[in-house]
Every structure is written in C-alpha cells, then in structure tokens.
Design a protein around this nucleic acid. Structure first.
Ligand SMILES: [Mn+2]
Ligand SMILES: [Mn+2]
Ligand SMILES: [Zn+2]
Ligand SMILES: [Zn+2]
Lengths: 142, 142
DNA sequence: ACTTATATTAAAATAATTCTAAACTGTTGA
DNA sequence: TCAACAGTTTAGAATTATTTTAATATAAGT
C-alpha cells in the first residue's frame, strides 16, 4: 500500500474526507522519516516549494487544526507570538535555542521523569513537559 | 522609606527614569504581597480600575518590556496567542488550567529538580521550567 | 446523476503587538 | 534657575498571526 492510500485510510478513519489538499499536507507532514517542528508559515513555504499545488492559507490553518484535534499533531508552547507544531505527538521535552528560535527535541531518556507532588483539586494532569532554554554563553547585556 | 521612594530608587538604579507612569505601574505590580500572573490586557484593566491615571497602551507595553529586560518581570510560555507575565522572577514551574486558562505557580518543592543529561554544543542552559497542563477529567471529545 | 454535508477559498475581520512621529518631561550642568 | 537634551509618553497607524465569512467546489451516499 502506498502512502496516499495509507493517508486516505487514516483520514477516512478519523471522519475527515481525504481531499487533495489534506493528502498533500499529509505527504509533507508524515512521510519524512524524522518528526519535525514547524510553524504555519514554514508549512506554507514547504507546500509552495515541494508541491505544484497551491493550498490556501485558510486551508492550511484548517487542516493543521483538524490534524491537531485528531491527535496527529501537537501544538508547542514557546515564548513567542506564533504557534509551533510538532509531528512528534508523544509526550516529550524540548530545548529552545534563544539565539536561533530553534526548537529541538529532548530524548525522553535525557530527562528523568518529572514527579509532581502537588495536585489541583478536581483537575487531572494532561501533560508534563519541560522546556529548557539555551543560548550562547555571552549573556547579552542590553 | 515609602513605596514610591523605593520604586524611584529601583528605577534610577536600573537607568530608567522614574516617570509618573512607571511608578504607578510599579505600585500595581510590586506592592501586592503575593506575586501574580497577568496579561497586558489584565494590567491595563487593573490600571483603569485602581488608578485615576490613564496610561496609554503603548506605554504599558513599553514599561512591561523595560521591566522584563531589567529582570523585574518574566514572560511565561503558554500555548496561547497572548503573552503572560509573572511578577515572580525566580525560576519556577507552572500548572496551566486548560479549562479556565489560569496559570498557577507550582512550589519549587512540589517538583524534584529536573536533571538534564543532554547538552547542546556551544550553548548554555538559561532556564529549565516545567509546564503541567491540567483539565477536568471528562475529556472533551470534540 | 442528485443531494447534501463537508471542505476550500479569497477576502475581510479580529486581536495582539510594534512602530511612528510628534509632544512632553526628567535630569543635568552652565 | 533654566535651557538643552535625551529619554518617555502618546494616539494612531502599521504589522502580523489567526479566525471568520460567505460563496464556490467537492466527496460520498442514494
Ligand atoms: Mn514578546
Ligand atoms: Mn491557537
Ligand atoms: Zn518536539
Ligand atoms: Zn509563576
């Protein structure tokens, strides 16, 4: 079974119609061997470059949100004014390079599992994630 | 020495002129006994309510960024399209209530110190913070 | 094929934040 | 004391990410 059929099946199973646009976006997001992080702008650029197809910005937003809702993408909290998304949907930690604004996965085995002693009444823990900010040593004294 | 003099001194020492607006904002941010989290919108609302003074939105932004640069405020990474600020500038962890969008401090003693085994070549760790997302148990299946 | 619910689209709307450029004010030193 | 200047405030415009709108197109079931 080729990728297209796999994506078609995956989408149908999620109750999402396998449209031309969604299949193209699946191809871009899920065919790379490695998972990666991206912004909507990044994704739009990749689509423009790798595909002959033009996909409207609204559709890119719609699709990314639909995929997130289905659990095929994760949104990452970064100190920034734009959203980052992650094709690695497992719970994991990140390094954030403040010099380059680059987000780097941190292997689960690189950080001991975080033990939380406190709990919020009536609330359940949905995720526990660590963000390690890094930068070059020369502290910028502006 | 009253608060105003303290803030005046603090600002002067930072190379910031103790203007009427900055002193008012200091009062709002730093006189409460407890630290707290806020957005620019929150702060603007507090200023409108608690103070006779009107402070322009641009000045609120300018001041918050100036205070952040001087280390009197911290910006918090939340999965959202607006920035949260924290008057607690010590390194600490947070709970984020996904139902209410509320940010709650997690005592340093409630989470064991996080040990990072990986390191990024040429980069220094600037901060290590944990974000615990919580929500009511009934998972929303939308 | 026909129907209908879904999806795509361009364009407009929204919302947070930053920029601009003019007016204002705190500080300094003659 | 006060002129001069750098730093600050301000309203409003600009920018940017994201969402909404409403019209058109398409997938899927009959
Ligand atoms: Mn910012
Ligand atoms: Mn969002
Ligand atoms: Zn990741
Ligand atoms: Zn806090």
């Amino acid at each position: 079974m080729n990728n297209l059929n796999i994506y078609t099946k995956k989408l149908r199973e999620s109750g999402l119609r396998p449209t031309r646009q969604r299949l193209k976006i699946c191809e871009v997001l899920f065919s790379p061997e490695k998972t990666f992080h991206f912004t909507i702008k990044d994704l739009t650029k990749i689509i423009e470059q790798k595909l002959s197809e033009k996909i409207s910005l609204a559709t890119v937003y719609n699709t990314v949100h639909a995929f997130k809702k289905k659990g095929y993408l994760k949104e990452i909290s970064i100190n920034s004014d734009k959203s980052y998304f992650d094709t690695n949907v497992t719970e994991h930690h990140h390094f954030f390079d403040e010099d380059t604004n680059e987000l780097i996965d941190c292997g689960k085995n690189e950080i001991d599992s975080v033990n939380i002693k406190q709990n919020i009444t009536g609330k359940k823990i949905k995720s526990v994630e660590v963000l390690v900010k890094v930068a070059t040593d020369n502290q910028n004294q502006n």
